[in-house]
Write a protein that binds this DNA or RNA. Structure first.
Lengths: 208, 208
DNA sequence: AGATTCATATGACAATTGTAATATTTTCTT
DNA sequence: AAGAAAATATTACAATTGTCATATGAATCT
């Protein structure tokens, strides 16, 4: 199994290399210490698995992975990181990462690599536990900004998506009911929707 | 690593046993051929991992797992099944299964067992690909049945939750608009909601 | 100061929605 | 076939919603 390790902390990447190469059948083709490096080395070596940290200076692991997957759609990226950060998890899932595990469980690395190599997708247990809440709570504001939704509008959207009526939203935001209506009217137009129900649905579909 | 295998097809379970025991460090403590059996054997042996089929006569794997997890909350259940059935996946996730992989990839079993043993959660790639759609489309009907929602009503709920107007739903279901309105009125009362937007929200919150 | 933009508001209107009471039709039961 | 239960429909009404055109006041710019 040919692996490339990416981590901007040389201490980490070398000890990873040691751990991995202590096992039969594992070969570390290269060690990168930045996202850019990772991309370059991936093109050169085309490893079976890319074992990558997320938080790195300049280009982070997620960006690098995204770039790589664009070219090599079958690339297997296993993220190895310190924090189970919601945003990272979401992004990793979106990119189609084959795994997301925490560094602290170093004894998990070999089994995870094996599992990924054999075509599975692996999550650390902490990550798995977070998945449901991540999926249902995290809102990606960027989706809205893309449609030209401004902050106030977004606020209103989130009230609509909690099931409040115009009157209730107005009270909540110290606006007149008419103003709220106007806002919603504009939001609907921007999002090309017809009514508040579709708006709430849109909201829920853009979770994650 | 101590394992119990559960499959009502003896051919499958014995060949699994052979495959697993061919590897160093794996021990198959027992083989069950039904859900009830699995529960009994789990209590007796308390294995590290329960490798279980889902579809079985009488008590299926999911029910058995649920029962077992109730008593042994740390139980590690790895489902090994033929189909990536949406409902099964959801249920497995809910129970807190540590993995869900497909039988056809028999070479994945050992890596998966290792990964689960080391505390990770493993999904076959097909399963992983299905996750997003499963999460956002599959509804657990039981939640609705609890509220006394009948099939027709449920149908309407799902249309509302797609953003259709009463008129559109009526056309879709070959009913009059008034009838649809009546249905919704009753649904709202049953669910103690106020309007279709809250209904859609309810729907999305009861996904999974 | 004058012009412009922005946030908020108003009023009038039509469409949609939710409710309730009652009717009609279909299906099931025996 | 008669009666009960269900599914579907109708009507009328009130409330909410979405749209639009326009107004007001405050903040910003030059």
């Amino acid at each position: 199994m040919k692996i490339i390790i990416v981590d901007d902390d040389i201490l980490v990447s070398t000890s990873l290399k040691t751990i991995i190469e202590a096992n039969e059948g594992f070969e570390v083709l290269a060690v990168a210490n930045s996202g850019e490096d990772a991309i370059k080395l991936y093109h050169e070596h085309q490893p079976d698995i890319l074992l990558m940290d997320i938080r790195m200076e300049k280009m982070n692991g997620l960006q690098a992975a995204e770039e790589i997957v664009k070219t090599f759609s079958h690339a297997k990226v296993l993220f190895l990181t310190t924090f189970a950060d919601d945003e990272y998890i979401i992004k990793a899932l979106k990119i189609g990462a084959k795994g997301y595990i925490l560094k602290q469980h170093y004894n998990c690395i070999i089994p995870a690599l094996n599992a990924v190599y054999s075509g599975q997708v692996v999550f650390g247990e902490e990550i798995m536990n977070k998945l449901p809440s991540v999926m249902s709570n995290q809102v990606n504001k960027k989706n809205y900004q893309d449609f030209g939704i401004i902050d106030k509008e977004f606020q209103i959207i989130s009230f609509v998506s909690k099931g409040l009526s115009n009157k209730e939203i107005a009270k909540e935001l110290y606006l007149s009911e008419g103003t709220v209506r106007n806002y919603i009217s504009i939001i609907l137009e921007k999002l090309e929707l017809r009514d508040r129900t579709q708006l709430a649905i849109f909201y829920f579909n853009h979770l994650l």
